[in-house]
Deep mutational scan, measured.
Amino acid sequence: ALNRGDKVRIKRTESYWYGDVGTVASVEKSGILYPVIVRFDRVNYNGFSGSASGVNTNNFAENELELVQAAA
């Protein structure tokens, strides 16, 4: 299972961040479909780089994520 702070690569092909590595911000335990919230260094097309207006978190299912580096 994934944990907060883990570095993960995104495998959801239609995602803006496909192939990117993000950090797990939190994992919901309530049984929702996309329980893993991942935070990225770059914002998506809703904002400009360096601006706070873009979105830099997204929810994924565990099977859409590949663990790159476990949290220390």
Rank of each mutant, 00 (worst) to 15 (best):
N3L: 10
N3Y: 10
R4M: 10
G5K: 03
G5H: 04
G5L: 03
G5D: 02
D6Y: 02
K7T: 08
V8Q: 00
R9W: 05
I10G: 01
I10F: 02
I10A: 02
K11S: 04
R12C: 05
T13Y: 10
T13F: 13
T13N: 08
T13C: 11
S15Y: 04
S15N: 03
S15D: 06
W17H: 03
W17R: 02
W17G: 00
W17M: 01
Y18G: 00
G19N: 11
G22I: 03
G22S: 03
G22A: 03
G22M: 02
T23G: 00
T23C: 10
V24W: 03
V24K: 00
V24I: 08
V27R: 02
E28Q: 13
K29W: 08
K29Y: 11
S30Q: 09
S30Y: 09
S30H: 10
G31P: 11
I32S: 14
I32F: 10
L33D: 13
Y34D: 04
V36F: 11
V36P: 00
V36L: 04
I37P: 00
I37F: 07
V38Y: 00
V38Q: 00
R39W: 08
R39V: 15
F40V: 02
F40Q: 00
D41M: 05
D41V: 07
R42W: 06
V43A: 07
V43Q: 05
N46H: 10
N46D: 15
G47R: 03
G47Y: 06
F48D: 15
F48E: 15
S49R: 04
S49E: 15
A52M: 10
S53E: 14
S53M: 12
S53P: 10
G54Y: 05
G54C: 14
V55I: 13
N56V: 07
T57N: 06
N58Q: 15
N58I: 06
N59Q: 08
N59F: 07
F60H: 01
F60Q: 01
E62Q: 09
E62W: 13
E62I: 13
E62F: 15
N63K: 08
E64N: 01
L65E: 00
E66C: 05
E66V: 06
L67D: 01
V68Q: 04
V68I: 11
Q69A: 11
A72E: 14
A72N: 10
A72Q: 14
